[in-house]
Write a protein that binds this DNA or RNA. Sequence first.
DNA 1: CGTTAGGTTGAGCAATATCAAATTCGGTGG
DNA 2: CCACCGAATTTGATATTGCTCAACCTAACG
Lengths: 264, 264
Amino acid sequence: MTVRRQPSTPLTDLLATRFGRLESLGENERDLLRSIEGRQKRTHGPNERMLAEKAELRAPHFLLTGWACNMRALADGRRQIVNILLPGDAIGLSLRSHPASFTTVMSLTPVRAVEAPEIAEAWWDRDHMPGLAAALDLAAAEHDYFMTCQVMRLGRQTAYERIAHLFMELDYRLSSRGLSTNGSFLMPLTQETLGDVVGLSVVHVNRTLQQMRREDRIELARGRLTIRHPEALCAAAEFSPPFLSAPRPTPTGRVPNLSAPAPA
Amino acid sequence: MTVRRQPSTPLTDLLATRFGRLESLGENERDLLRSIEGRQKRTHGPNERMLAEKAELRAPHFLLTGWACNMRALADGRRQIVNILLPGDAIGLSLRSHPASFTTVMSLTPVRAVEAPEIAEAWWDRDHMPGLAAALDLAAAEHDYFMTCQVMRLGRQTAYERIAHLFMELDYRLSSRGLSTNGSFLMPLTQETLGDVVGLSVVHVNRTLQQMRREDRIELARGRLTIRHPEALCAAAEFSPPFLSAPRPTPTGRVPNLSAPAPA
DNA sequence: CGTTAGGTTGAGCAATATCAAATTCGGTGG
DNA sequence: CCACCGAATTTGATATTGCTCAACCTAACG
């Protein structure tokens, strides 16, 4: 067996790179993250149902490694992936006050996750956990933003634009977690799965990818995607990153600094 | 001029019918709603931009009468309506901690709205406003649910299914506000606008509507939609209402009762 | 009554789906 | 190292859905 390991980025690293320097976190917040991280992991094989639609989720989870998704199926087998879950994403966090999931959560690759009930608590208890709460706000805003992108893609964009836009989104999201460098990252989705994300048939996904390759926009092989010409793809898809501004002061007046990316 | 008035449902009525009996609201919460209601209204003509993309929204608003939408446009003029805002819906509430709007908010009919900064406050201050906070949770959950529906529609459903599903959604949402009775309600959207919601061309929307009329599934004329055969449309579109369960206890332990619809 | 926005119709076309059959690739066991 | 297997990708041919364009119609409204 080769030495290729899953980049086992620990939770704190993941969140740190994602939300900027975590220096602004209080000692109690760091402790909380460390204790979550030390916890028993939950593992799943690929294409395994992690949570059924309408099922209750006891507590939110964090995805540590692997990709998963929220999806929904129609009776005749058509499926739509609503959004993709990447390492560092929370599962079922939006269900703040609403325990039943609106979608099926499904792993797309082997997956490791941890249960983190305290995270939901922290979101409520802004006063005790201002840094974490702000980070969660930011994550929720980003999620919102990409949901509207998903709607735009599916409703009004062509096959080429949809895929280009999705690739830019993935690059953006993975970059902020240290999982993409120079527009190159591990992209474990099959073309079939890709089709279920962007609402296209496998065959058409395949042909569109080939066009992108012919035009030298991307390189995609062996589960690795390299974006050769991000400007072109951005322009074609009219992609722009979410303009996430600094978090507002919390009611307590504290303004945690989480939005700036860590200086290199 | 005929006597047909806009049903000028006051805010409290609207929220009451929407979230169930508001009896469980505290006196301070009712006072708050009343004071919001007494406030200066903001009016817009149809097809007016109420809030630009990336613009900052000072405070959330409530839509009192008329329809509006969140939308996004591409450079070449294609537009996608992300979701429809109905009377009783909040505008920019999801921007809890994030002031910049991800979409353009646009009126679709003449519109009346009120600014309600205290609503955002109430959502933070769960302890002082448990009933309102729970209602907002519920509204947010419903919004999430219908966003996933929108993605499903656009990604994997046929024209007929998309429109059927949308009509059932509208009926559901309007019913809970007392604005639809027996599957009949004022539906002020033009076919063009409808197309921008479900990602279809005007022409195709037109033909699909005609098919629905031929099959006697709907009646649609003069801005009024009547669903003649809800079971058929539900089945065709695989529509099901959001399974909104009772709100979880807040951290304070109080469990406001807002989820049950008011007994008739 | 004229104007205009919205709705309707027909004809042709483009994008994407479907079906069916290769072909390649990453393992895996011999 | 080789042969083989199943999953994923690729290809070609054809079908379908929904789009575009252009004209025409209708109703509401001043």
